[in-house]
Design a protein around this nucleic acid. Structure first.
Lengths: 209, 209, 209, 209
DNA sequence: CATGAATGAGCGTTCATTCAT
DNA sequence: GATGAATGAACGCTCATTCAT
């Protein structure tokens, strides 16, 4: 039924390749249809505009991100999760084109693209929720009012590191970044979560919701 | 004597506004000069090309960032620095336009603008160095091989949080973010630096250089 | 099947007309496509740049000139050739637009257009060679070291006369010009070639190569 | 009274230099006033438009041509005249920039510039008249109805040769060209004028006017 | 369904010309 | 008189989009 290599799919993949290879600014319709081995007319048969093509690429890209996130279910032991995260980060740093694409999408979203913005919001929501679960599952601490904020901060750190990488800052290597994450995962997070928990018990606080 | 609102300044400010409002791609010469209330010819009297306008905006924007960073010299006590950082972060989250501008410029740099990229690289280098100094100054620990990586990670975290904010992710509020930073500054960083230092002593390592 | 008036042809003809009418400098893309009754986009579909349009016009114009020249193959008797040349000159003086076009293109070449210059150089080379052959064929004299120079001088004379005509100097009429050519062809050239040949024999010279 | 180095003169000389050095297309007002060491405003004080500047340069250029022509008064012996002509041609071939300028002016005239056209007409008139006088003076033949046409043809040949030179045709060297002129002056012209004269006597013709 | 020739608004840039100082 | 900052029309060129075939 579903053709594996139908024209729409070929266009989407071509767009992804062209953006990755030449950047979004040079991703012209002409370049995309040439890469896809089809014609402008065909493209406009499946898409209403160039933006729709980009949205499609973006959808696929965000779905892929989510797919990766879903692999990190609340596994049992920290070392397993560390392994997931480590290899995940490893991969993410290597996917230069994918990262560039994501930043392009973020750019578009910031410019006021409502649909994109809500997609991003959902994506981050899912990511952050998943990391929060992991915090609970791995470190076995009860919820604190800051678990969610800490999860968001962790994700922010990854995004920021990737951005530095794309900008060619080159001050910390992937290896150093992974060492820092090792410390965060093995030492900082257990320490901090325990600390917050104690603090909140002393304050007589229970979880906010 | 010195004109406060000479044409070049007006062009630069107009470019800032247009980029922040519509993104780099839509910051056309026409849009900029209209916003500045001047003409294309005047723009090309002061700048050789559109890129030069971008560089100028970038320079001004990064200088502003640096100005903020410079206030955080290696002051004596952590609580003072915390205060600086907290208020600095506070400010940064509020400067939506400035943040957007920086992300748009970063995006342009990622897309292959070599000069912009090297400007960013230099700037991050400076920021990271400054934060590294602060780590030493505040926490009084000797250098570890990861100080630089930790400084970079801290900056990455801020950038990532700002990005989430710009994307309207809205999962964590500014208040929560600042609480997280309080914990990082008061507890995590002293803990982690001490820990790494001990570890490196045990490994017989001395500082690398 | 073969469209007589396809867009590319219309563009080329329009360019010829515009250049002949207003000169190369005023032959803007806009003017050409308006004359051709088409659009800029169509022009750029067939040509990569404005220069390519110029080259195409040039090529067509020079081919037309060559077509005329080719009719003057080394025919047997001087009176036949004279007839060809006379009618050829006649035609050339009448083709005001074509002449103007060639002068405008030559002007552009002189101003530094390398490709145009080399096209002209090749074309003159061919013309001069052809006239040289005619000198040999008609007057039956052996080669002298100056045959080529004399051929070039003959062509130069035609060009110069055409230029005077285009400039409206109006001192000599076409009829007078043709009479002069009659004398050159019937009397001067046989005389001069014979004279040079004798001279070179006396000097113990043989043909140079 | 007349300032030797007043601004107008400096502008004219600068324009001449710039056109010679970079071609007419690159002879911008900016380049000219920079070369002249003055300002745009000053230029527009002395000239109504850029074209007027060019006309001024042209006037000087054509006057210079005439000045050269005037040196070739109907001198006594052919060898003297040959010397003048030879050195004159020699010079003309070397003045590449001057020649380019003249062809630019011719271009402008052909485009319909009435004033320029009449200047050219006068210049050619003078040149041709002078050459005609020379023909009479040197070769001592009475006027024939074609003297004027032959003079015009001689000038046309020079112009055509110079054009070939500017186009980089490079088939005949300056040396070869001068040899051809030697033959023309010493042999062809005496022969042809005598021949025409005889012919006209036989036809019972006298000079037309 | 698919094609690619055709469109034209819009881009960055140039430069002759003007005019307040 | 002299200056050069400012103007804006016009340039060559790009490319998302349309539509006859």
């Amino acid at each position: 039924m579903a053709e594996v290599s139908d024209i729409q799919t070929r266009i989407q993949e071509a767009a992804r390749i062209i953006i990755a290879r030449y950047g979004v600014n040079n991703a012209t319709i002409q370049a995309i249809v040439e890469e896809a081995g089809t014609s402008k007319g065909a493209l406009y048969h499946y898409y209403r505009s160039k933006n729709e093509v980009l949205y499609d690429v973006m959808d696929a890209s965000l779905k892929e991100s989510t797919r990766v996130a879903q692999k990190m279910h609340a596994g049992a032991r920290p070392d397993e999760v560390l392994h997931y995260i480590t290899s995940g980060l490893d991969e993410r740093f290597d996917k230069v084109d994918e990262n560039r694409l994501q930043f392009y999408l973020a750019h578009e979203a910031m410019l006021g693209n409502k649909e994109l913005k809500s997609k991003f919001a959902r994506k981050y929501d899912e990511w952050i929720g998943r990391v929060e679960e992991m915090l609970l599952g791995i470190y076995g601490v009860p919820e604190t009012s800051l678990n969610r904020a800490i999860a968001a901060a962790a994700i922010a750190t990854v995004d920021g590191m990737v951005m530095q990488d794309l900008l060619g800052v080159g001050i910390i290597s992937k290896e150093e970044a992974l060492k820092v994450w090792e410390i965060i995962l093995y030492k900082v997070l257990p320490f901090i979560l325990e600390d917050i928990h104690k603090q909140e018990l002393m304050d007589g606080k229970t979880k906010d919701r």
